[in-house]
């Protein structure tokens, strides 16, 4: 298939899919859930400030010699944005993870491939559609955070813009990850279960590891010590396998104000996306379009 035909096919399919997404209710529910989560965090921050008289928003674990260890607290807008982005990214991953298996399951894929569509254009079209859908989600998020910043006086820095850019790359990772899952399974149910299990593991292991690492060394004995080491190993694997880890790495670069680390994180996100898309295409080719 010639390249321009492929581009036309990608563009037509992506437009059709995006139209369908925007006319559905799902995307608006996902945006609302993301914003409710962000609002929940901001609501608690405001409550904390009003109750305690003040609040500092640190972004890293702090251990003090004089008052014991404090749990990590949060930066006002970056963390709510990060969680809202997670929700948006989970929505597009779920949608991407069903993209191939649903069409295969329903038998529409075979019909589609009688036209000027091949595996590369099909996967790319699905991918582009997810990225565009995520861009719409980001538009809502940006409007929300700008408004809330004006009302609450919570600071918005250049880190916010960089976080938005980073989240587009996260969307790329997530969509490619979803497509990869989808290409592996023939049924929608399998894709969804696989997606849910992996998402829970990817989000919970770093969280549990973080909690375990907040315990002082003297308290960590026996099973706790084994758990700490195990989650440390798992975490180092998840650091490269999980798409969320790429956002985490980038947001750390933003906190550290390190441009080189930030660019590095974007590059690795891109690499991850390309690798998974290639993987999806080759699996898709090998498995074929029939049910």
């Amino acid at each position: 298939m010639k390249k321009n035909y492929r581009a036309v096919a990608v563009s037509a399919m992506a437009r059709r899919e995006l139209h369908s997404t925007l006319f559905g209710f799902g995307i608006y529910i996902a945006i609302a859930i993301g914003l409710f989560l962000a609002s929940f965090l901001l609501y608690n921050y405001v409550g904390g400030i009003q109750e305690n008289g003040m609040m500092i928003m640190p972004s890293s674990v702090t251990q003090t010699r004089y008052y014991g260890s404090n749990l990590p607290a949060v930066e006002p807008m970056q963390v709510p944005l990060k969680w809202a982005v997670y929700i948006g990214a989970i929505y597009i991953t779920l949608s991407a993870s069903m993209a191939i298996s649903r069409e295969k399951d329903q038998g529409t894929l075979e019909v589609l491939f009688y036209g000027p569509v091949d595996s590369v254009s099909f996967i790319l079209a699905k991918f582009v559609e997810q990225i565009l859908a995520f861009a719409v989600i980001l538009l809502f998020y940006t409007a929300y955070f700008l408004t809330m910043s004006q009302i609450s006086n919570f600071a918005l820095s250049s880190g916010f813009v960089r976080m938005l850019l980073l989240s587009l790359f996260l969307a790329g990772c997530m969509a490619a990850f979803g497509m990869f899952i989808s290409s592996l399974s023939k049924r929608v149910k399998t894709s969804v279960i696989l997606f849910l299990v992996l998402t829970i593991v990817f989000l919970s292991v770093p969280l549990i590891h973080g909690l375990l690492m907040n315990l002082s060394d003297d308290e960590v004995k026996g099973a706790w010590s084994v758990a700490r080491k195990t989650t440390s190993y798992l975490n180092s694997i998840i650091n490269w396998v999980s798409p969320f880890a790429y956002l985490e790495r980038g947001s750390t670069a933003i906190v550290l104000n390190s441009t080189s680390e930030f660019i590095k994180s974007l590059f690795f996100s891109l690499l991850y996306t390309v690798a998974l898309l290639f993987g999806s295409i080759s699996i898709f080719k090998r498995k074929g379009v029939r049910r």
């Binding site: 405001v46 809502f140 408004t147 006086n153």
Partner: peptide
């Protein structure tokens, strides 16, 4: 920096997430 928090922040934090549902 020291910033003084807006007094109506909590109300708007509850209100704004409803807008996407309205749009939908």
């Amino acid at each position: 920096l020291i910033r003084n928090i807006g007094p109506r922040s909590r109300f708007f934090a509850l209100l704004l997430p409803l807008i996407p549902i309205l749009v939908g």
